[in-house]
């Protein structure tokens, strides 16, 4: 497809990664995944399968115990400005107004205030928040906060955008609107997107490939190619036979991984101990 390869030569490579949060329980054992430049990749799987953990490895908040994570051949640090991360929660800065939140990153990298405001406004309007620039973020609804958070990441114009269930808190209608907005933005900027979701529709509608992940430490259960033609548009795409076929396939896959051997007694004990230790900290 034409939109892939627009950003030449960049590749995200996850190479035989082992990871655990200390303790014996492995979250990943020998995890491998290559993401093509400009690709839209969704990750779907049961709660606790390690989706957020994967993004934390990709963003450099955690380091793999073995193996490596490379973007364009380089290791990744959270401070890298070509990296964007929309968290599961909006995590805005409550002492700043909505637009100042969007400007925050631009300010950190030293963009002069005029250019900064202009760029922030562009993305602020892009996510449909025109008119709410000067609101304190806590005076915005949950869905609006999540959109500010999205605009804040987009304004940095990252080449790798990690998104952890960004629309999980939105109602179905807003969610579909946001899906279209996201595709439009992605089409315009051509960044690589890793998109975590619990929503099968969303995964099928958005992605080039869909990763189904299994319970730890099973890692990736399956990678599904999504051949739905682009550009995709609401009712048109959603009513295609292929759309339903993929959906059915994913429902079955997820049923399989959900039923996957639940963690052994031993593993569960490890897990409880690990969590207990964290609470004690």
């Amino acid at each position: 497809m034409s939109h892939i390869d627009r950003v030449g030569g960049e590749d995200l490579v996850i190479d035989s990664v082992n990871f655990s949060y200390g303790g014996k329980l492995s979250i990943f054992l020998n995890l491998n995944l290559n993401v093509k430049p400009g690709e839209f990749l969704s990750i779907i799987g049961p709660s606790g399968c390690g989706k957020t953990t994967l993004l934390n490895l990709l963003s450099g908040f955690y380091q793999p115990e073995q193996g490596s994570v490379r973007l364009r051949g380089q290791p990744i640090a959270p401070e890298d400005t070509h990296l964007g991360y929309v968290f599961q929660q909006p995590t805005l800065f409550p002492w700043l107004s909505a637009i100042e939140n969007v400007e925050f990153g631009l300010r950190m990298i030293g963009i002069p205030s005029d250019a900064r405001r202009e760029r922030a406004l562009k993305y602020f309007h892009l996510v449909g928040l025109k008119g709410f620039e000067d609101f304190l973020v806590l005076r915005l609804s949950g869905g609006m906060q999540q959109r500010v958070s999205l605009a804040r990441s987009l304004a940095m114009e990252p080449t790798l955008l990690l998104m952890d269930e960004p629309f999980g808190a939105l109602d179905a209608i807003t969610r579909e609107t946001m899906n279209d907005e996201l595709l439009r933005i992605w089409d315009e900027l051509g960044q690589t997107v890793l998109f975590i979701t619990h929503d099968i529709d969303e995964a099928v509608y958005l992605s080039d490939r869909i990763v189904v992940c299994g319970r730890p430490p099973h890692g990736i259960y399956k990678i599904m190619e999504n051949e739905l033609p682009r550009p995709r548009s609401g009712p048109n795409t959603r009513t295609k036979d292929l759309f339903w076929q993929y959906k059915k396939q994913l429902i079955e896959d997820i049923a399989v991984v959900t039923a996957q051997s639940p963690q052994s007694e031993e593993e569960m004990r490890e897990l409880r101990l690990a969590q207990h230790a964290e609470v004690l900290e």
Binding site: S59, F61, P78, E79, D80, T81, L83, G84, Y85, F87, Q89, T91, L92, F93, W95, L96, F104, G105, R107, M108, I109, R152, S153, M156
Partner: peptide, 27 residues
């Protein structure tokens, strides 16, 4: 927790974290 992570992802260095996150958040 979260606010510092968000700031780091947005490119904030150590001293910027102090000035732009810890200071206002501590008021």
């Amino acid at each position: 927790g979260q606010e510092v992570r968000a700031a780091r992802i947005l490119g904030a260095r150590r001293w910027q974290l102090l000035l732009y996150v810890y200071l206002p958040a501590s008021l």
